[in-house]
Write a protein that binds this DNA or RNA. Structure first.
Length: 300
DNA sequence: CATTTCACCTGGTGGC
DNA sequence: TGCCACCAGGTGAAAT
């Protein structure tokens, strides 16, 4: 069995894994750049599994619509669409009721970019939304784990992530989530029907900051332990969002995508390296089918 | 129902 | 230099 060690560089695309903070950053950046713009033309590359709604139906639903707002729910980016004959001011956007939504999930390697129409089209570009301003909204996803969905709000409910928002969840509902459950706390954090938006990086990091072993049965954690975890999770996510703010233009704008500025991880992908708190080598195990990193001395 | 496992994808990486 | 197996992980379906 081969293991990543300190001598092996992690694959570079790991530096921009889209979890909640990254998705939040992208949504904010795209919102700033295209709110009020009108979609004049739509082009899709044929990649069937990327489309939760058939491409032709999405194209029909998007063409001619105005982008009223772009925001995040869980790991999903939701573009609110409204009918208008021309581009709108920001003020007009907030006054208009959305009639449809375009929902973008970045998967593992997805990017939502704002470019110009003329900009060279990157490999693995699956969607291009040409805008009245001369900009273009592009969805690029080499690995094709991302998903695109369109829904008509006249006939369907607004998109709602299954799980609760980790950033705002309070003590009591957080405790209730895990009550009576036997699955490992790490697996529970990754389960999007419980909490929405937590991925492998922030699961490992928040468990480290809470001092909890990833393999602990989630239903057996005490009240104080769960409260430590809730606060660690929120701190880690908030910090990442703050850091993301400074790198958003690198990410959302055109070609020279550098990915996200990385918080200095404490455990994630630091197998064998010394713990930043006690210098014990960081251990790696597999929980819920995912590589999991923790400090054997600091986490109990 | 709760939980676990696996397939889907591509590109970076190291071994030979 | 080039070929190739391995591995990363979000999600949903299938298996347990």
């Amino acid at each position: 069995m081969r293991r990543f060690s300190r001598f092996q560089a992690a694959p570079s695309y790991n530096s921009c894994m889209p979890e909640l903070p990254e998705v939040e950053t992208v949504a904010r950046g795209v919102h700033e750049r295209v709110q009020g713009d009108r979609i004049t033309e739509v082009w899709f590359h044929r990649v069937p599994q990327t489309f939760k709604t058939p491409a032709a139906q999405q194209a029909r639903g998007l063409r001619g619509q105005v982008l009223l707002a772009i925001h995040r729910t869980g790991k999903h980016i939701v573009c609110e669409l409204g009918s208008a004959p021309a581009a709108l001011s920001r003020k007009e956007c907030s006054a208009l009721e959305p009639t449809a939504q375009w929902i973008v999930h970045l998967g593992m390697t997805g990017r939502l970019l704002v470019t110009t129409v003329e900009a060279p089209v990157a490999p693995h570009t699956h969607a291009r939304l040409q805008l009245a301003s001369g900009k273009e909204l592009r969805f690029v996803d080499p690995r094709r784990f991302g998903r695109l969905e369109w829904r008509n709000l006249r006939t369907s409910p607004a998109f709602q992530a299954a799980g609760l928002e980790p950033l705002t969840i309070e003590t009591a509902p957080f405790r209730t989530l895990f009550r009576g459950r036997k699955l490992a706390i790490k697996a529970a954090l990754l389960n999007q029907t419980l909490l929405t938006g937590v991925g492998n990086i922030y699961a490992d990091e928040s468990l480290f900051h809470a001092g909890l072993r990833p393999g602990r049965a989630s239903g057996r954690l005490t009240g104080p332990e769960l409260e430590r975890l809730r606060q660690a999770l929120q701190t880690v996510l908030q910090q990442a969002i703050q850091m993301g703010g400074s790198s958003v233009s690198d990410y959302v704008d055109a070609e020279g995508v550098k990915g996200f500025f990385q918080l200095e991880h404490c455990v994630y992908q630091r197998t064998g390296e010394p713990c930043r708190r006690c210098e014990t080598p960081i251990a790696r195990i597999v929980v819920g089918g995912r590589s999991t990193h923790f400090c054997p001395k600091c986490q109990h």
